[in-house]
Simulated scan of single mutants.
Amino acid sequence: MNLFRLDASILPSTSVTSEIADRAEAEWTAAHPEGTVTRRHLGTDPLPSDAWALATTAAFTAEPDRTPDQREALDLVAALGAELESADAVILAVPLYNYGVSQHFKTWSDLVIASAGPGTPLLKGTPALLVTALGGGYGPGTPREGWDHSTPYLERVVGDIWQADLTVVRCELTLAATTPGMEGLRETAAQQRAQALDAARDAGRVLARA
């Protein structure tokens, strides 16, 4: 059994998404002590930003005419696609940045899509957990309602394009503990964090059983 885990936080030592994902991973590894965990941390080891353009142009270039950079990009695309396709379960820990999807995750997902084509269900039927964290509040009735442009994209790619059996664990108000002006939200933030950890534990058990 193989679990693929991807992290995208640029602050791994204080990452809420990593903390929540750890809870799910612990359940999976407890159930599969002989299993393997393939990790990719885009925050600490980002992919080259030009790789997608190089791989895309290489696809329209005759093999003898491809540049060394194009060939390297194609090799990377193939490796990323194989890494995901070989997974029996998937955990993706991706925070919201600047109201949108992490640039590191976007680079990775573009390259994975390039590996098999934009309509290929790479994770069809594969259980996947998406953990996402948001520094503020974006729910109904909040001043920033509708400003989360990350979660819908992540669900579209992982759930709709790749057709994973997707569970989402979402944690808001993660900046309340350290941000002036958010003191009144700290109790709510702590409750949300505890709920997210519990949800991740339950989701990890589901991944382990699948």
Rank of each mutant, 00 (worst) to 15 (best):
N98Y: 09
V90W: 01
A116L: 08
E85G: 12
G100E: 08
A73C: 10
G81D: 05
F60H: 14
G119S: 13
A87C: 09
D50W: 07
L92Q: 01
P68K: 09
A59W: 09
T38C: 06
I113T: 13
R66E: 06
G117H: 11
L54T: 02
G81H: 04
A89R: 00
S102D: 06
F60Q: 07
N98D: 12
T67I: 09
P68G: 10
P46A: 08
D50Y: 09
V101D: 00
D69L: 13
P68S: 12
R40V: 04
D45F: 07
P95A: 09
D69I: 06
V77L: 06
A79M: 08
E83R: 04
D75T: 15
H104M: 07
H104D: 07
E85P: 02
L111I: 07
R66H: 07
A93G: 06
D65K: 13
P118W: 11
D50V: 08
H41M: 04
W52Q: 03
E85C: 07
T61R: 12
A89Y: 02
V101F: 02
F105P: 00
P118Q: 11
A89P: 00
L84K: 02
A89S: 11
L76P: 03
R40P: 03
F105M: 12
L74V: 11
E72Y: 04
L84M: 14
L96W: 03
G117R: 11
D45P: 03
E85R: 14
T38D: 13
L80I: 09
T56H: 14
S49M: 12
D75S: 14
T67D: 10
T67C: 12
A79P: 05
A87Y: 00
Y97S: 02
T56G: 07
P46N: 07
E85Q: 14
R40K: 13
S102N: 06
L47K: 06
R40W: 04
Y99P: 01
G100F: 09
T44Q: 10
R40C: 05
E63P: 11
A78Q: 12
T61N: 12
V37F: 01
L74D: 02
S102R: 01
V101M: 13
G43S: 07
L42I: 04
L76E: 04
I113V: 14
I91C: 02
A116T: 13
A87T: 04
T38Q: 10
L74Y: 03
A51E: 01
D110V: 05
P68N: 10
V90M: 04
V90Y: 01
A53E: 15
V112Y: 01
D88T: 03
R71D: 15
L74C: 08
A51T: 06
V37E: 01
V77K: 01
A82H: 08
A73P: 01
G117P: 07
T38F: 05
H41I: 02
E85K: 10
D50C: 10
S109Q: 11
D110A: 08
D88G: 15
G100N: 14
E85H: 11
D75E: 15
R66W: 04
D75F: 08
D110M: 06
T44Y: 06
S49K: 09
D75A: 15
A89C: 10
R40Q: 11
